[in-house]
Amino acid sequence: MSKLDMGKAAVFADDGTPIDVATSPWARVKQVLALRPVRITLIVVGIVVLFVMPVIVPSQYIMNVIVVCLIWIPLSIGQNLVTGNAGVTVMGQAAFYAVGAYTAAILSTRTEIPHPIIFLIAMCLAGLVGFVISLPAVRVSGDYVFVVTLGLNLIVLDVARQWIDVTGGAAGTPGIPLFTAFGWVSRSVYDFYWVALIVAAVCTALAVAIGASRYGRTLTALREDRMAAEASGIRATAPRVWIIAVSAMMGGLAGALLAFHLGFVGPSSFDTQVSLLIFEMAIIGGLGSVRGSILGAVLLIALPELLRPLQDIRLGLGGIIIILLMIYRPNGILGSSSTSPLVK
């Protein structure tokens, strides 16, 4: 972040006292370490664990669960950027997920395009669909948005099932090759972990950066009180169009991950229940909280995977938890404490 960023918020210690930010980089590092020892330790430990993960995880099954969680993280984070930060109730994340997955499946089975480029194409196409759908979506009042986006989900499903020449219809597109980049081939789920980790980490970093930026605060202002924000000179349309496009791009990346992870793409991975599951995992950890989105993905994907009986009731259980959260703790389990309480 540049030192001349005028919109930068003041820095506070964990106990709430304002502090002067040190000027030299090294002094600043020391200052941060002294102020937030627990948080810094946790982050460092977390990063170390992520790096040694393939070594310490003994079974292929557990590794698989971890990779699946990593695939859901961009979806969850993207959803939360739109719903949590900007307050736009988009409800069709599975549509962008599908666009990314089918793009990756079709390009990797029919062309020789290098796989990293396929990831970028999948991302851009999903982003484009998000951009196009956001134009009518942000013009209509809030409640209409999720019907419009849920409708997009249904359209994408229709196309995936009917346009058999391209998508394979209900049977899907099988035979997606192993992920290959610069001569390196992902031969097992242990290798693919790194691909998923990079994508999830990039999305996480982007979401954190957006949340901390002036743009992030613009979105929050629009969410909290659109009229007041507009009266303060904030444009209401463009920021929300962009955040929907960014979130769709994250969905597209997740789709490409899914395609290369499974080696197969079919319409059943993208039905409306998936959109709702993504919505749930984004909200359950807190509106606008990146940590919360990650926790939500882990809670709703890994936990039911490891405890089979939870699998069938996870949507409903999540629903009940969310209703209780909305009533008692609208900012979620790990809701960001920096935003004002949403209930006026």
Partner: peptide
């Protein structure tokens, strides 16, 4: 319980109620 809250809150809980019924 959410009447009068920021609009996104009851919308979210309406969706959550739907999920419970669907499940």
């Amino acid at each position: 319980p959410l009447r009068g809250a920021n609009r996104i809150i009851p919308t979210v809980s309406a969706v959550a109620a739907t999920l419970v019924l669907e499940n």
